[in-house]
């Protein structure tokens, strides 16, 4: 049976990354449905927020270019919200896999807690659906890498979206799909790819979670719209073997992560003896 896939993101339905991911999924013969926030929702984690009009969630048909026949919706809600309602049949039969991305900017290290891209994947996993979060490290463009401390950031920041390598991230993600579908249900694969042509990738490696890492957020500047920001701890030399270090070295990184889970190694014994 064809795998049914929900493609979502936190950059918004019009973002180029979701287009690339949906296209790649369709090329692999998957049954694709796209539902994503109407506008950017970076840094929303697994938030449950939505806008209704007359008691109904606002949903617009939003056909994507070059994806005729793929149902695509812009939803006035957060990525986590969209994922949850999709699993309950809001956009046709529930998906068996959720692919979230391709995000504009890396989501690496423990800071993925805050990521809307990862939040959608966590929401899926928590509700019994396999999921992958996919991000493109836009700050790694050209010679600028996370390890270069942003020396070449100005140059990298001027790269137009059309010139970024969304397709590289989408291809890496879909190549990992068989590993996802054979993994335990509650696991999420978090995939980060440098902004490079696929042929220039040094490979795909398993990364450990950097202690803080990097997450994308937006800051609304009054009267100036939104400013995209990469939130990261400064002065940390990339710890070897982490997702951040792999990206800086030109590798795509994949980390298996798990959302809310019980910690059984905490001593909470003896509570039933108290009044």
């Amino acid at each position: 049976m064809t795998v049914r896939v929900l493609i979502t993101n936190d950059d918004g339905i019009a973002a180029p990354g979701i287009q690339a991911l949906a296209w790649a999924a369709q090329q692999r013969g998957l049954d694709v449905v796209v539902a994503a926030p109407m506008e950017e929702a970076s840094g929303t984690s697994a938030a449950m927020s939505a806008m209704e009009r007359d008691g109904r969630v606002v949903v617009n048909d939003h056909p994507l270019p070059d994806l005729a026949g793929v149902p695509a919706y812009g939803v006035a809600g957060s990525p986590g919200f969209i994922t949850l309602i999709a699993l309950h049949g809001a956009f046709g039969p529930p998906p068996s896999v959720v692919l979230s991305g391709v995000n504009r900017g890396a989501n690496a290290g423990r800071a993925v807690l805050h990521s809307g891209t990862v939040g959608a994947a966590f929401t899926a996993a928590t509700n019994g659906c396999r999921a992958m979060a996919v991000s493109l490290d836009v700050l790694s463009a050209g010679e600028a890498t996370a390890a270069s401390g942003g020396v070449a950031v100005d140059a990298a920041a001027r790269v137009r979206d059309a010139e970024r390598h969304w397709g590289t991230a989408a291809r890496v993600a879909l190549d990992l799909l068989p590993r996802l579908t054979s993994a335990p249900m509650e696991s999420v694969l978090n995939v980060n790819t440098p902004d490079l042509p696929h042929g220039q990738l040094r490979g795909v490696r398993r990364g450990t979670l950097a202690s803080f890492g990097q997450v994308q957020m937006t800051v609304a500047e009054s009267g100036h719209g939104f400013v995209r920001t990469s939130l990261e701890e400064p002065g940390q030399a990339a710890q070897p073997g982490t997702d951040v270090a792999l990206l800086a070295a030109g590798y795509a990184s994949v980390t298996a992560i798990r959302a809310v889970s019980e910690a059984t190694d905490i001593d909470l014994t003896g509570l039933d003896e108290q009044p």
């Binding site: 900017g105 137009r160 979206d161 059309a162 995209r228």
Partner: peptide, 17 residues
């Protein structure tokens, strides 16, 4: 319609926030 965004991508730290 070709994606043309090249908005400044800022970098921020939790301390700066």
């Amino acid at each position: 319609l070709v994606p043309a965004d090249s908005r400044q991508q800022e970098r921020t730290t939790p301390d700066e926030l």
